[in-house]
C-alpha cells in the first residue's frame, strides 16, 4: 500500500496528522547533538511522503529537504529524513516526539545517516534535532525556535506582563554555537564506565595484541558528551600471568578521534574476540 502525499497544501490537519509525533527522550545538549550527528545542515522542506515498510509492518514518513548550508558532514543537495508514523489512507499513526515539518519552512537539522538505509537520514534525538527558522516580523532577523525540552524558566512578574521572553535565538548566534560545539575538543570524564565488545585482535609481539572494540550502548557521560553505541575503541592487550591486561588508548566518536586512558582485564582463556567488557576511564 502506497500513497504519495503532497502534504504541503494548506490543509493543516493533514500535516498535523501525517507528521507523527518518541516519546521518552534523554535531553541532549547542543554539544551532544553536534557530536552525535553525521550531518548538521540548514535546509528547507521540499516534499513529504508516507509509506509502509517492505514488511508492511510499519509506517514511515519521508521528508525531503533541500540543503542550504552545511555545518558538519558532506551531504548531497537534498536529503530524505525518515521518521516513524504518518498517514496512509485512513491509517493515521501518531508517534509523539517526531518532528512536525512545516511546508517550505527552514530548519537547522541534526541528522544521522541511517545504518539500515544509508540513503535516508534520521533526526538525532528525535524532535531535539530540528530547530525551525522564522523571520521576526519586527526586526526581520532570522531566529530559531528551540525544540520542546529547552525549558524556559520564568521569573515572577505581575499585571499584564504575563508573557515572558520567548525561547528563540538568532540564527547567526546559533550558527556560532554550532561551530563552537563542533570544534570543542572532546574529553572522556574520569570514572566513565564504557561497556564494549571486542571485535578483533591482532598479534603485536610476544604476549601482546592490538585490540579493537565497539561500545554496546549509548553513553551520555556528561552534558557535553555522547558516545554512541558502536563507537570504535582501540587499545593494546598484554598477557600478564593468567589474564590479558588491556590499555585502551583511543575512541572514535562519529569519526573524531578522542584520546582515552582506561584499563580492563580479561581472563586469558580462549579468544578475546567477542568478549564483553566494561572499561573504566581513569
Amino acid at each position: 500500500m502506497k500513497m504519495r502525499t503532497q502534504l504541503f497544501a494548506v490543509y493543516v490537519a493533514l500535516l498535523w496528522a501525517a507528521s507523527a509525533s518518541a516519546s521518552t527522550l534523554l535531553r541532549m545538549s547542543l554539544d551532544q547533538l553536534a557530536q552525535a550527528s553525521t550531518e548538521v545542515v540548514r535546509a528547507h522542506v521540499v516534499s513529504q511522503e508516507t509509506l509502509w515498510n517492505h514488511a508492511h509492518t510499519r509506517i514511515y514518513t519521508y521528508t525531503t529537504v533541500a540543503v542550504d548550508q552545511t555545518y558538519k558532514g558532506n551531504p548531497a543537495s537534498t536529503l530524505i529524513v525518515q521518521q516513524p508514523g504518518g498517514t496512509i489512507g485512513k491509517v493515521h499513526v501518531f508517534v509523539a516526539g517526531t518532528i512536525q515539518f512545516h511546508s517550505q519552512a527552514g530548519y537547522v537539522l541534526f541528522l544521522e545517516r541511517s545504518a539500515a538505509d544509508p540513503s535516508k537520514f534520521l533526526p538525532v534525538g528525535m524532535m531535539q534535532g530540528a530547530y525551525r527558522i522564522y523571520r521576526d516580523a519586527t526586526t526581520q532577523e532570522e531566529r530559531l525556535i528551540l525544540p520542546l525540552g529547552f525549558l524556559t524558566h520564568g521569573a515572577p512578574a505581575s499585571g499584564a506582563a504575563s508573557t515572558i521572553a520567548g525561547p528563540a535565538v538568532p540564527v547567526r548566534q546559533f550558527q556560532r554555537e554550532i561551530s563552537t560545539a563542533l570544534s570543542r575538543p572532546l574529553t572522556i570524564p574520569h570514572g566513565t564506565a564504557i561497556p564494549l565488545a571486542i571485535r578483533s585482535t591482532q598479534l603485536a609481539g610476544v604476549r601482546r595484541m592490538d585490540v579493537q572494540g565497539r561500545t554496546t550502548s549509548d553513553l551520555f557521560p556528561n552534558a557535553g558528551l555522547v558516545i554512541p553505541a558502536g563507537s570504535a575503541l582501540s587499545g593494546m592487550a598484554e598477557r600478564v600471568g593468567d589474564s590479558w591486561e588491556i590499555s585502551w588508548t583511543e575512541v572514535s566518536i562519529r569519526g573524531k578521534q578522542v584520546l582515552l586512558s582506561a584499563r580492563s582485564s580479561a581472563p586469558a582463556v580462549g579468544s578475546l574476540r567477542g568478549r564483553l567488557l566494561v572499561v573504566n576511564v581513569r
Binding site: 516519546s23 527522550l25 535531553r27 510499519r58 491509517v91 499513526v93 501518531f94 534525538g125 534535532g129 549509548d218
Partner: peptide, 15 residues
C-alpha cells in the same frame, strides 16, 4: 539510531 537518546516510543493508530 545510536547516540540519539530515544528511550522508547509509542505508535498510536487512529481513525
Amino acid at each position: 539510531p545510536t547516540g540519539t537518546a530515544s528511550i522508547a516510543f509509542t505508535t498510536v493508530s487512529t481513525d
